[in-house]
Simulated assay, not measured.
Amino acid sequence: MTPIGEHEVVVTSDFNVAKAFIEALGADHLSTAFQNSLWLEGWVKMLAQPRGITPLFCMVRNPEGRALLLLPLCLRKKRFRRIIEGADLGVSDYIAPVMASCFVPTPSEWTQLWQRIVAALPRHDVLRLTKVPPSVGNRPNPLTWISARHVLELQAHGVAISTPWETCALRIFSKSRREKFRKSWRKMAEFGELHFRCVTDPTEMTGLFEQLVAQRLHRFASLKRNDPLRDPNHLNFYRSLVANGANAGFVRLLLIEIDGRPVAMQFGVCHGNAFHLLIPTFFDGPWAHLGPGMLLSARTMQWAAENGFTYFDFTIGNESYKARLGAVAHDLHEIVVAGSWRGMPTLAAVRLKAWIKRRPLLLSIVRKCSRWSISPSRWHPRD
């Protein structure tokens, strides 16, 4: 590998330049779904720009001009502080770089490169990367080699899937869970003609997605819980994914319906060998006690396996239903670096919070005193 000191590091806010750079990384580049070009385009146009937040795309090339790495970030201002963070803004579940397949740095080489990336960034008071996964594709995520990191209590969950599905289901689900699924499907069929299907047509997906949103907003309001989809920018972001990602095979909507009426729906994205479940919901009705959300999750897992996916990603959140569907927890990391004296209070607060989390007794006391919720839930199918 060419010495890191000879690599070029450039930062741009132009998404078109970043998109061309991702293409230059090669068709076999490594990334998560949340750094996919379709995802980033919607993120820039529907979230960053309307909020006056500056996208930052860090691009690394070797001396021969070969594209090696792109790291999507953003710069926002909060009171008197300038904060650089991952390209998230509440929608991206993982923060990671996009890497060429030939880019295989050692931890020491990455440390040198990281110092150059930070030096190339605009002036900032805090650099904070949250929800950093341990790997990108089949490679270690080099962001986890940064020393200024700690493990979050928030975790990601997923499970390896395979065919034949009958054999995979024996491995994933308990005997009682399999029997419960069979019984629920049989009883739900008593209400009418029962079907599971995957929607790929953009026009139909658009209409069904609006039904999904309306149901979620109604359900969350009845539970007196905040739903991110109430934010028009968030909602427009997902609408843009539907509009631009359906034909590309990036987004899929799956549902169970009775006599053509949706009973439960799930919206997710396809990337590499994985299907990522993002938004599940179910509809009220006499079948609600049969657990249509859990039943649809199992059916979606089967669909994913039979369509060539080898990993079903429930993404972030520590909800208990994921374990009942065979999911395994994976740690997520957070990196916080102070860029100036204004960032020191943030750094101190993050370190204190991480220190408390590592002490269960103290953590329980803090939670009882302040009702401090550390693991926010986002989506909840019903069991």
Rank of each mutant, 00 (worst) to 15 (best):
I335T: 08
D14Y: 06
W110P: 10
C168F: 13
A248I: 11
P262I: 04
I356K: 06
E319K: 02
V10S: 15
I83V: 05
R82Q: 06
L71K: 04
V269N: 00
F250W: 04
K19E: 12
A24Q: 10
R382H: 13
S375A: 13
M344C: 13
R342V: 06
V10M: 15
V126D: 02
W145N: 08
A160V: 07
W39E: 00
V151G: 10
T206W: 12
W145Y: 14
V9E: 07
F267L: 02
L71D: 03
G42R: 00
N307E: 02
V328A: 15
L70D: 01
R371G: 12
S92G: 04
H289V: 03
P3Q: 05
L362H: 04
V11S: 11
A248R: 12
V98E: 02
R378D: 00
R225P: 15
V350R: 11
V91E: 00
A327Y: 12
R51P: 00
A327F: 14
G137F: 14
S108V: 06
A119V: 10
A354G: 10
R358Y: 07
V118S: 03
V9K: 08
M46V: 00
A120H: 14
T2A: 07
P63A: 11
G317M: 06
R342M: 05
M205E: 03
Q49H: 07
V132C: 07
V336R: 07
A305V: 14
T315D: 04
P360R: 08
A246Q: 04
